[in-house]
Design a protein around this nucleic acid. Structure first.
Length: 946
RNA sequence: GCGAGCGUGGCGGAACUGGCAGACGCGUCGGGUUUAGGUCCCGGUGCCCUUCGGGGUUUGAGGGUUCGAGUCCCUCCGCUCGCACCA
């Protein structure tokens, strides 16, 4: 700062901005960061890098927000850029690019707010973000920057959807296969059509055309499913489970979400549950993220057991993890929405039905009324209320009974909202003796409780969940849980009453949204109302221009409203005449759009081959960059632990099964960057006030004279605590911002933004600059005289440490080492009047990944040819890391009493002798009994005295 | 409630497989340069005593293992994240 009075060639913001622009232009013009592909359109220059090892470094796909970047956003991008530049200097052919995930709700809502078309707003946002990122000096290959909203990109998103639609999961082969192979199997009689679409199991040859289509559709990995979904009227769309928060609201916009049965596109991710779980072992990911995925997939081992209904032909199927306790199943519970409920409710209560079993709606209601009223009650409960602390079990008797297949006893069937339709079969056998929830319910409704595992003592209270011998369990008696489970499993299979089963918490992925700004489905409907694929040759299905793209205005609290996709209003677009093999016919297009996650499931594949019009990615190019295990380094925030990472893994596996990619996993190494946090201030009303204008006095904070409270959290426009990178570029330059963000902590840690701390790294750059360039004359002042031995040793120690740290993404400590070296260099310059080239050149090269503009500029001024991006990273001489003499602390009873200097290769005995010889130590040992001497070679000596 | 992680100076953070706690930077104090402020340069800076030699103490709290613990083990407290009636 204060550029006016500074010497002409001082490293000020003005000079920084000058050289930054210069080098950014240079890199762009010289194609410095173009990474050659082995073949195809982007292969220019591959010959020169042929012998190099490849490296694929990737940032999580950014969303081009209308608010522009704040200084928190680029933390990860700087980190990957430093790493990529470092590895480029280590001789790797590095692919590093950045594109834009630009479809989705936020862009649409921003467009609504600003009265623009989403495409206009999106393109402006991308342009602004490109400008801000370019100013950071990121070494990206600009040719590979794609946006999900590009027609040429979403054409391939649609193409992948078609692949998913045109395939099914072959459980025996444990992989997806083309649907045509399934049809061929049916036609050849190698496989029988089963499932809900063909409940009677009619042979394929006897099925009519429509039923055949329905059967095939029910096998597809992308299918229309009538299911209870998360309907969010506030957003006018349905949401995936992953997009709904624990308190039953939308993660975008925080609107209420209601359960509602609707027909929606669904992707069969559950078919991949086991592989998504098992393949986590192949990945170099943080354990917490793996754990979150494991928990989300939620594998549990148990059994399905069928309970015959009394007086009905139907059976009730339940899933349980404790089949060993089936003798203690004294009642059953169905989810209120369970499809069998209506069929099994009788007209009248069985005699002697206890009043409390009839629910809280009066004793004179019929079973049907009681069930209807309870359903109404349960449906109205918000998720929040359902999960509230201390919630009391509620439920109502259906009037029906099932028969416990093991005890042959008749047990009552209840409906209760503590059983969820979405998990297992939506029905449970209740075993109060061994389950807390069932115990609570049984207590409240006075249902018998039978223990089937002996508790440790006779007066044990409550349900017993621990292990012990089985009791009251017929042929299981005496067995421990594991053995009893095994034995009952055999019994169930033998008697056709069930089977050991693995169940997953993971649900299929709800894939349609009733919004405008997303990829249209490549699907049309014929007169029969069944979905048909638009042939790949007719892709893309372009998103039509709509003047009014807003969703129907709905009351966010109105659960009864229905989705109304905006595309249904695109009359010209909606109807289409196509020849799908049986002559030209009229079809209606699918009016839903894909969720935002679709485009981000495969963008890393498109970076590889962004201009390919014949394939999503050329196989040879894919095989060059992706193996062995996927992207080499993937950096992004933890917030994508489940959603994006699970969906992208799923798509990758489908593409792998169908032979389109060569790796089973997309991202080999994942690294979670931290966040830059900031103080935010609120006034008395709790409204955030402009953080930049808050004053601190005596530990209190004031805004316009009014005292405000301080909090600490994420940066956000609404919180009025953002710092724009543009302001930092202006005041210090982009290199200073880069260095600051890398210096304040390890990449995976969150840290507070502190504008005052920036001065420290800025001063470092200034000092370094001054060590090389005379501030007044602008002359380079380096000498070719060799440096002194001590400085040389420090240089080589620094190179060693910086190499290690940069390889481990520990940029903060690498920078600290460079600070130390520069401090030494400053002394040398003061002594000699010039900086030894021997030190300066490696120093500049080591700094270059962190502050590339300063690096390039100094390198050029040192008379080296542009650019240093491919110069070898400095190597150290191991001989110079070895010290002749070392300092060793000498302890007495664990306290340091002296430090001695000894030759580095000293023997233990000699070290002890040297320690004893020290004046202070000798004095302290005088007259004392040395019980023990610990000598750690080269590290310390410890005398233990009485 | 269940699961995971984290607690180190005034602040951001260092500390390899247990071996001199506090690297590096900010801030701050003292000195130099300067008409002055800022920049810049040199030095001090965990805390408490000190006769200036040094001594004591210190990594959320308490306990344990060890010659030796920020690091390993146990209990507790605090914060962060994930899940949330998952049968």
């Amino acid at each position: 700062m204060n550029d006016d009075t500074a010497p002409a060639s001082r490293y000020t913001a003005r000079l920084a901005n000058e050289i930054e622009r210069k080098w950014q232009d240079h890199w762009e013009e010289q194609h410095t960061f173009w990474a050659p592909n082995p073949s195809g359109a982007l292969s220019e220059g591959f010959e020169q890098v042929k012998g190099k090892e490849k490296l694929y470094v990737l940032d999580m796909f950014p969303y081009p927000s209308g608010a522009g970047l704040h200084v928190g956003h680029p933390l990860g991008y700087i980190g990957t850029d430093v790493y990529a530049r470092f590895q480029r200097m280590n001789g790797r052919n590095v692919l590093h690019a950045l594109g834009y995930d630009a479809f989705g709700l936020p862009a649409e809502q921003y467009a609504l707010e600003t009265g623009q078309h989403p495409r206009t707003a999106t393109e402006a946002n991308i342009a602004n973000m490109r400008r801000q990122l370019r100013a950071l000096g990121l070494g990206h290959d600009p040719r590979r920057s794609v946006a999900t909203t590009d027609v040429a990109y979403y054409r391939w998103t649609q193409w992948i959807f078609l692949q998913i639609f045109e395939s099914w999961y072959d459980a025996e082969a444990d992989r997806a296969r083309p649907i045509a192979e399934l049809v061929a199997d049916f036609e050849a009689g190698r496989r029988e059509p089963t499932g809900d679409a063909n409940p009677d199991g009619t042979p394929w040859s006897d099925l009519d055309e429509r039923t055949r289509r329905e059967v095939v559709n029910s096998y597809r990995l992308a299918f229309l499913n009538e299911a209870v979904v998360n309907w969010c009227p506030g957003l006018g769309t349905v949401l995936a489970n992953e997009e709904v928060t624990a308190d039953g609201r939308s993660d975008r916009g925080n609107f209420p979400v209601f359960k509602k049965p609707l027909k929606q596109w669904t992707l069969r991710i559950t078919a991949y549950a086991e592989r998504l779980l098992g393949d986590l072992d192949l990945l170099d990911w943080p354990d917490p993220i793996k754990l979150m995925q494991r928990n989300w997939i939620g594998r549990s081992v148990g059994a399905t057991i069928r309970f015959p209904l009394v007086d009905h032909d139907e059976e009730l199927e339940v899933f349980t993890t404790r089949p060993d306790t089936v003798f203690g199943a004294t009642y059953m519970v169905l989810a209120p929405e369970h499809p069998l409920v209506d069929a099994l409710v009788p007209d009248d209560w069985p005699s002697n039905t206890a009043a409390r079993w009839k629910g809280e709606f009066g004793a004179d209601v019929s079973p049907r009324d009681a069930v209807a009223k309870y359903r109404e009650f349960a449906g109205k409960q918000s998720e929040m209320e359902r999960q509230a602390e201390g919630r009391e079990k509620t439920g109502v008797f259906t009037g029906a009974f099932a028969r416990n297949p093991l005890t042959d006893g008749d047990i009552p069937i209840f409906i209760a909202d503590y059983v969820l339709m979405g998990y297992g079969t939506g029905a449970i056998m209740a075993v109060p003796g061994q389950d807390e929830r069932d115990w609570e319910f049984a207590e409240k409704f006075d249902v018998p409780i039978v223990r089937t595992v002996a508790p440790p003592d006779d007066d044990f209270e409550g349900p017993y969940l621990g292990d012990g011998p089985a009791i009251n369990s017929g042929f299981l008696d005496g067995l421990n849980i594991a053995d009893a489970k095994h034995k009952i499993g055999e019994w169930l299979v033998e008697h056709g009453a069930g089977a050991p089963t693995i169940n997953y918490k993971l649900r299929d992925w709800l894939f349609s949204r009733q919004r405008y700004w997303g990829e249209p489905f490549p699907i049309v409907y014929g007169e029969d109302g069944l979905p048909r694929a638009v042939p790949a040759s007719l892709l893309p299905v372009e998103l039509p221009d709509l003047d009014d793209f807003r969703p129907a205005a709905l009351d966010p609290d109105d659960a009864a409203s229905d989705p109304a996709p905006p595309l249904a209003r695109a009359e010209q677009w909606l109807e289409v005449v196509l020849d799908l093999g049986d002559g030209p016919k009229r079809y209606l297009r699918e009016t839903n759009t894909m969720p935002q996650w679709a485009g981000s499931c495969w963008y890393f594949l498109r970076y590889l081959d962004p201009t390919n019009e014949d394939a999503l990615v050329d196989r040879e190019i894919e095989e060059y960059w992706m193996p062995p295990g996927g992207v080499d380094l993937y950096v992004g925030g933890v917030e994508h632990a489940v959603l994006h990472l699970l969906y992208a893994r799923f798509w990758q596996k489908v593409l792998f099964d169908l032979g389109h990619v060569s790796t089973v996993e997309p991202f080999h190494r994942l690294y979670n960057q931290g966040y830059i946090q900031a103080f935010l201030y609120r006034d008395q009303r709790g409204i955030a006030v402009e953080a930049a204008e808050v004053e601190e006095r005596d530990g209190k904070f004031f805004f316009n004279g009014e005292e405000v409270t301080r909090e600490f959290g994420k940066m956000g426009k609404g919180l009025k605590n953002t710092v724009a990178p543009d302001d930092i570029y202006r005041d210090y330059g982009a290199d200073t911002l880069r260095l600051y963000e890398m210096f304040t902590g390890p990449l995976d840690a969150s840290r507070p933004w502190s504008t005052t701390d920036i001065i420290g790294v800025h001063r470092f750059l200034q000092r370094l600059w001054r060590n090389v360039v005379d501030e007044d004359s602008g002359e380079v002042r380096v000498s070719d005289e060799p440096t002194d031995e001590e400085t040389r040793r420090l240089l080589h120690r620094t190179i060693s440490a910086v190499r290690d740290d940069m390889g481990d993404l520990k940029f903060n400590t690498a920078i600290a080492r460079l600070f130390e070296l520069n401090n030494r260099l400053t002394q040398v310059v003061a002594d000699r009047g010039a900086a030894p080239r021997e030190v300066v050149e490696p120093m500049v090269l080591m700094l270059a990944p962190l502050t590339p503009h300063v690096g390039e500029e100094l390198w050029q001024r040192l008379g080296r040819p542009a650019t240093l991006a491919y110069e070898p990273f400095p190597e150290f001489d191991p001989a110079l890391l070895v010290e002749d003499e070392i300092e060793v602390p000498v302890q007495i009873n664990g306290k340091v009493r002296a430090t001695i200097r000894v030759p580095s290769g000293i023997s233990d005995d000699a070290l002890e002798a040297a320690a004893r010889a020290d004046e202070r130590i000798a004095a302290l040992l005088e007259g004392a009994t040395v019980r023990k001497v610990i000598v750690v070679p080269g590290r310390l000596v410890n005398f233990v005295i009485a």
